[in-house]
């Protein structure tokens, strides 16, 4: 924790995932005075991944947590400052961009927004009430609490399948509930899940309600095509659906698309001079660690050009 953080920088990077850390490595090596602001865990959402197998250079795969730590160490080596704070707003003042945070205001010549996306919630009855009582958002944290018990995973993307594969090591069986009739996850992930006998799929199905008093007991389901309701007895439900961008603090400052993602050009520039965006927060991002890292580097290079002009 920086005791007295400086207040003025060349570049401020919002978000400490692969996009932000890559941007930080590039701006620091360009000898730009750089500050990265992260509100939670440096490394970002990738730190939830048990094993990252598609990041080039790690032929045997690498844990998300380790990948995050390595990026952080690399950035720190070149002098990137990191502060823990929540960004509450962004203001433009002539040549300066003011980043408002829970630890005061910081100013910079250029800002790179790389604050990523967050896990969505189902928003159904019982979800909030039973969070921590069988409803979970982190399989690597909570799987061991469900040894030899039946579990459901809601979602059909890579995060959901990765969680199902991890849970299958503990649970008696894992039921993947997906609202479509095919997965969004990468083919190799799907093949792995199908080869695991403890994993089953419930297609075209949504969860309407989570039932239970002191712990999750049952899910109320609905078949999307027929509208037919059904129930499923389980001990836990892991939610891995609907990533959403964390861009509320940017409304009215930076142009966003309907879903709340930041619109940029291929230089990672937003319409606002000196404000760049990188990674999952960008419109049409494939939301991969490697594409986020690439965005971060591109944004950093163009931020450097912007500052030197």
């Amino acid at each position: 924790m920086t005791v007295k953080a400086k207040k003025e920088y060349d570049v401020i990077i919002i978000g400490g995932g692969p996009a932000g850390l890559s941007a930080g490595i590039y701006t620091s090596r360009a000898r730009l005075n750089s500050l990265l602001i992260e509100r939670g865990v440096v490394g970002g959402r990738i730190t939830d991944a048990e094993l990252v197998e598609n990041y080039p250079g790690f032929a045997e795969g690498v844990s998300g947590a380790e990948l995050g730590q390595l990026m952080q160490r690399q950035a720190a080596k070149y002098g990137l400052s990191i502060v823990t704070a929540e960004v509450t707003g962004l203001e433009l003042k002539k040549e300066k961009r003011v980043v408002k945070t829970t630890r005061g205001d910081f100013t910079a010549k250029a800002v790179i927004i790389a604050s990523g996306s967050e896990r969505g919630k189902l928003g159904i009855p019982g979800e909030k009430e039973l969070t921590g009582k069988g409803v979970s958002y982190c399989a690597t944290c909570d799987a061991p609490f469900f040894k030899e018990k039946p579990i459901a995973v809601v979602g059909g993307g890579n995060a959901a399948i990765s969680e199902a594969l991890h849970l299958a090591k503990f649970a008696s069986h894992v039921i993947v509930i997906h609202r479509r009739n095919q997965l969004r996850a990468t083919r190799i992930m799907e093949e792995k899940a199908r080869a695991q006998s403890r994993i089953e799929f419930l297609w075209d199905t949504v969860v309407e309600k989570i039932d239970g008093k002191d712990a999750v007991k049952q899910l109320i389901l609905r078949q999307v095509k027929t509208g037919k309701p059904s129930t499923l007895d389980i001990a836990g439900v892991f939610v891995a659906v609907g990533l959403k961008p964390g861009t509320d603090f940017l409304k009215g400052v930076v142009p966003l698309d309907k879903a709340g993602y930041i619109i940029t050009n291929d230089r990672m520039e937003t319409e606002i001079p000196g404000i760049f965006a990188a990674g999952d927060i960008r419109q049409h991002s494939p939301r991969q660690a490697i594409t986020a890292a690439g965005d971060g580097a591109t944004a950093a290079v163009n931020a450097e050009i912007f500052i030197s002009q």
Partner: peptide
């Protein structure tokens, strides 16, 4: 919670950090 299952069970801990 790994070493102290009694207290963890008493307070129904099924998710961590908690």
């Amino acid at each position: 919670v790994d070493q102290n299952a009694k207290v963890a069970a008493k307070y129904n801990i099924m998710a961590i950090p908690n």
